[in-house]
Write a protein that binds this DNA or RNA. Structure first.
Length: 366
DNA sequence: TCGCCCTCCTC
DNA sequence: CCATGTGAGGGCGA
């Protein structure tokens, strides 16, 4: 049977949530900003509405630069409120889950879903479900979203991307090759600037050119996994299943320092709330970690890490603090420049028997 | 397997 | 002049 895979993406999510909360800003450029706190306007634009985009603002743009572009345009600058968006997101995900076979959230505002068995492989039936999802989100939250349907994750994601804002695009199985072939390779999920450049060097700019490429050649330039993925994806034959309830593999926290420094004690001080945040995550999820890393982003924006792995899983706040301390000691001695940002990450997460909550025994899935 | 780095994703 | 924050995954040398 046909696989029927969907991808949903809420339009300019953070900014749209802010518009719903305060409709009076809707006609203005809306910028949801991450203020780093170094100077008044330091930080970046996380999301903006379409009015702002028309005026040249985009995600990742420094706030000061965005303000310059919007002089005289009466922009609304709003501080990002992650918890608020998290609450809205959870409600939406729960509502979608009721309408699909499998739901795989891949971010705060997007998810893959599988409709293969409920649609019986029929895209017309799946399309009706997709419309139902869109309608229910609009009815309940007043938020618009874009949805794509195709025979694989890569196709579904491309469709939702092309459908935005507020659209629905379906690519039927027998339309897939013709749909993919003329697209630039950079449109494919997982193909960023570096991979695009590498492919261009091999003479490949369109997806169709990869479908017929020599796998050995691709592998030599891009590595085994990526080569295999690209050949499959370019034919719309990527076979990654939609999987519900993916467990996080790591928790991390990075902060921007008030002032650049090489002093490990300073770095540690500003990161202290980060240690607690990670510890809370571990406790809440009932998990322990096996590896811990500290991350330093230097004044020239290069990234350095230092990590260690324990023989057995641990979860103590004191261990996080003390390991980070000694790792930062080592890292600061090996770098020539000051830290601009510092972070900590725990990985190799696992459940520890006596930390599991009762619900895990009542409901063995998880 | 570990440690480190690179690439990519989203907003 | 200014450049956030979170997480996944892969390559590669040791």
């Amino acid at each position: 049977m046909n696989r029927v895979v969907g991808h949903i993406d809420i339009d300019y999510f953070y900014a749209q949530v802010e518009e719903v909360e305060d409709p009076s800003i809707k006609q203005r450029p809306v910028l949801v900003c991450v203020f780093s706190g170094r100077t008044e306007d330091s930080g970046v634009v996380s999301t903006s509405n379409y009015r702002a985009r028309e005026l040249g603002v985009h995600s990742g743009m420094p706030i000061a630069l965005a303000k310059k572009k919007l002089q005289g345009k009466d922009p609304a600058l709003i501080r990002m409120d992650h918890e608020k968006y998290e609450v809205v997101s959870s409600r939406i995900m729960e509502s979608i889950a009721e309408l699909v076979d499998i739901l795989e959230p891949t971010g705060i505002d997007e998810a893959f879903f599988d409709l293969t068995s409920s649609s019986g492989g029929d895209f017309l039936s799946a399309k009706r479900t997709a419309e139902e999802i869109k309608d229910s989100i609009y009815k309940n939250e007043r938020l618009t979203c874009s949805v794509g349907l195709g025979r694989s994750k890569v196709v579904a994601k491309l469709c939702s991307d092309m459908a935005k804002p507020r659209g629905l695009k379906v690519v039927l199985p027998d339309e897939t090759e013709a749909f993919l072939s003329p697209l630039p390779v950079s449109k494919l999920y997982g193909v960023g600037p570096k991979t695009t450049a590498a492919l261009a060097e091999m003479g490949m700019e369109k997806v169709g050119e990869m479908a017929g490429a020599d796998p050995q050649d691709l592998e030599a330039h891009l590595g085994r996994k990526l080569a295999a993925y690209l050949v499959a994806a370019s034919r719309g034959a990527d076979s990654e299943p939609v999987v519900a309830n993916l467990e996080p593999a790591q928790y991390s926290r990075i902060v921007t320092l008030k002032h650049d420094t090489r002093d490990p004690a300073q770095a540690l001080g500003e990161l202290a709330p980060g240690f607690e945040y990670i510890h809370n995550k571990l406790v809440a999820s009932g998990k322990s970690f096996k590896s811990i890393a500290v991350i330093g982003i230097l004044s020239d924006l290069t990234i350095r890490t230092k990590s260690k792995t324990f023989e057995a899983p641990v979860a103590d706040l004191a261990v996080i603090r003390e390991s980070s301390s000694s790792l930062f000691e080592e890292l600061s001695q090996s770098v020539q420049k000051d830290f601009r940002r510092v972070g900590v990450r725990v990985s190799g997460l696992s459940y520890v028997e006596d930390q599991r909550s009762l619900s895990d025994f009542i409901r063995p899935s998880r």
